[in-house]
Design a protein around this nucleic acid. Sequence first.
DNA 1: ACCTGAACACCGTTCAAGT
DNA 2: ACCTGAACACCGTTCAAGT
Lengths: 197, 197
Amino acid sequence: MRADARKNREHLLAVAGTAITEQGVDVSLRDIARRADVGLATLLRHFPTREALLDTLLRTKLDELTANAGALETFSSPVDALVSWLRDCVAWTTEYQGAIVLMAAAIEDTESALHASCVTVRAAGARLLTRAQAAGMARTDMDGADLFALVMALSWVGDQRSLAPRADHLFNIVASAILTSAPSNAAEEERDPRTHG
Amino acid sequence: MRADARKNREHLLAVAGTAITEQGVDVSLRDIARRADVGLATLLRHFPTREALLDTLLRTKLDELTANAGALETFSSPVDALVSWLRDCVAWTTEYQGAIVLMAAAIEDTESALHASCVTVRAAGARLLTRAQAAGMARTDMDGADLFALVMALSWVGDQRSLAPRADHLFNIVASAILTSAPSNAAEEERDPRTHG
DNA sequence: ACCTGAACACCGTTCAAGT
DNA sequence: ACCTGAACACCGTTCAAGT
């Protein structure tokens, strides 16, 4: 890439990050180009779609979450690792208002530039969930896709101005539903076999 | 209202209902006007904003939910009433894709035409929750606003194509988190109140 | 290679002119 | 009273022309 092109690209990313933090992911691309002092067509040359731009901005954070999951898996108890990772996931989304909807769409759209990063995050969460389940500390009737959907839903609550004040409390309620109150043993299984599957 | 105006209004509502069912709440207003064979300005004369149009379409359904809550309060057990009402709330939103976001915004925007209907629905849910709490069947650390936010979140999951397959399962998980496992009647609880409704 | 103004087909809003 | 075409200021997309 030519030096001037690279400079444009990096400047556009910085300006876009600011604009999206301020106005959410639906901010006008024309505005971003104006604020970056380039033509709109230049922005679209570097990032052919809004999602391509978002992908570049979000990928760093998503990969951070994936890496963080690995560290937690190594150094924390199954429950602590799962819960604090989930909390991180929900927390960071407040920075880019509306990003959650793009992520939810990307997880099953293999054409999406965000697809790979979303799948990786989901897999990281699934590993933490499996670990907690193996320790008898998490309900066994859910999988990584369920966990991902719950994280998306809680993040969406944090994204809605009117619901956001309840987000923390609802997180705790949902977290308590994921965790089992007693460690694994026959009696626990017996207590309610119907909720499996 | 003049007869021709009333006819236009009703025809617009019918066409808008169809269009929104097909394409979601972000469907072009110009398209609706075209399909109704009136000028766009005529649509905007009857419904000055998109939200005003949505309000008229959604109000019927929201008031139905409120009325249904009253009936359940009278004729069903606290747990059955709460769970089956919640299920109804989450289920109907699938008809108008995207409506959930408008409702979430309206609940705290007193300027919104949807505001009153949303507040009424939230109050109806709060009554059912209070009743279940009084019977010792629901956790006491949440209120109507928490319940409303949970319903919104679960509805949003049903709204996202990639997450929708998990919606039913997540509903059951969240419902089980709202209900307390320690009942006044141990035998009833053993039967599994979570799957009612 | 890379940039960009201009044309394009959309959108919701407004309003003067028509019946 | 009610309707509406037309003008307006936006949007994202595309591309021929410039450096």
